[in-house]
């Protein structure tokens, strides 16, 4: 590499495409959820209305009077992204029936309504809104970006925080091994609502995730997508490792990637030589205490057992 590399600057020469997730957003360096937003907008295109729960992606993208969104976008409060989306959908159902010229785009069928929330906004505080939207059958694609804690408020434990993780409300200590529960299974919960299409995906495989978004948007009715999105700050790792850790979570089976259609598992991204979860745990500061003694070892074993059980249920191993 030449010696003038400190001066290398292609800023004025690079070609930006149509970006509906715009740069200038305030997400931390190496943010996993920011990648999820990029992939969602790339897959959905401009004919889209996004409703977004309060949380990292809302805060980093919409400090008044700036917006990182190129699509129509609304944020209301923490726990209602699903029902705001349901209201938008009902409005367009009404326009479509009563005033077909209302929408400039070709017709309501081509309109994408996507609700986006973090794991806390979706699996915890927004659970009622999500359940209602899915049960009533609104034509809404819900995307839960999972960074495994309440990151916007400073890394508090959510129902998606994995066993053993030290967070600010599940701190490791002499009497605590960190978070004492396994991740709540949101895919099955969504499928049990009769949701036709449910899928999990990881930001480490954008092609797969975007295909799933596209597939969801083709289906009429509610859809639920769970996308794994590491957080360098909350998990305590180097910002450059976001994609690698997301992939390692998939390779260890901590985050299995699969699709469910009409309640049945229809595809699983099989893993050959599934790695022990220990390899993934070692990469993050939030699990550091697990390697300090016997109780930590027991917790690692318990987490491994939980993963093994799910892997068997899903037929994850190739």
């Amino acid at each position: 590499m030449s010696s003038d590399r400190q001066d290398q600057d292609f800023t004025d020469e690079v070609e930006h495409g149509e970006e509906l997730w715009n740069p200038g957003h305030r997400a931390c360096a190496g943010c996993g959820p920011a990648l999820a937003m990029k992939y969602i907008t790339e897959a959905a295109g401009p004919n889209t209305i996004v409703t977004n729960a309060t949380g990292c992606m809302e805060v980093v993208s919409t400090p008044f009077p700036e917006s990182s969104w190129g699509t129509s976008y609304i944020h209301n409060i923490f726990e209602n992204a699903a029902s705001v989306a349901a209201g938008v959908e009902a409005a367009y159902q009404s326009f479509d029936r009563r005033d077909p010229d209302h929408l400039d785009v070709s017709d309501e069928d081509d309109l994408n309504i996507i609700a986006i929330g973090g794991d806390g906004a979706t699996a915890d505080i927004g659970f009622r809104a999500l359940s209602g939207m899915m049960e009533r059958g609104h034509d809404v694609t819900y995307v839960m970006y999972d960074n495994e804690a309440y990151m916007n408020t400073g890394v508090q434990r959510s129902s998606q925080t994995p066993l053993g993780a030290s967070t600010t409300t599940s701190p490791a200590g002499t009497e605590s091994i960190g978070n004492d529960t396994n991740k709540k299974d949101m895919a099955s919960i969504a499928a049990d609502h009769g949701v036709e299409y449910v899928a999990t995906a990881s930001i480490s495989n954008p092609h797969d995730f975007k295909q799933k978004v596209e597939k969801a948007l083709e289906i009429d009715g509610p859809k639920f997508l769970h996308v794994y999105s590491p957080c360098p700050v909350g998990w305590s790792y180097e910002s450059s490792k976001t994609v690698e850790l997301a992939e390692l979570a998939v390779e260890t089976g901590l985050f299995p990637v699969f699709e469910m259609e009409n309640g049945e598992i229809t595809s699983v991204n099989k893993i050959s030589d599934r790695k022990p979860v220990r390899e993934w745990l070692e990469t993050q500061g939030r699990f550091k205490h697990l390697f300090d003694g016997e109780e930590g070892e027991e917790t690692i074993e318990a987490l491994q057992e939980w993963i093994d059980g799910r892997a068997e249920d899903l037929g994850l191993d190739a």
Binding site: Q8, D9, F10, T11, E13, V14, E15, H16, E19, W21, N22, P23, G24, H25, A27, C28, A29, G30, C31, G32, A34, L35, K38, P232, E238, S239, S240, T242, V243
Partner: peptide, 27 residues
């Protein structure tokens, strides 16, 4: 790139970085 900062350089067969937005995450 979470920040839309790694892009093709116009008219070239290689990529470059938009340093207006690159936060230096290293991904």
């Amino acid at each position: 790139c979470p920040d839309q900062a790694a892009k093709p350089v116009e008219g070239e067969d290689y990529y470059g970085f938009d340093l207006d937005y690159c936060k230096g995450c290293g991904i």
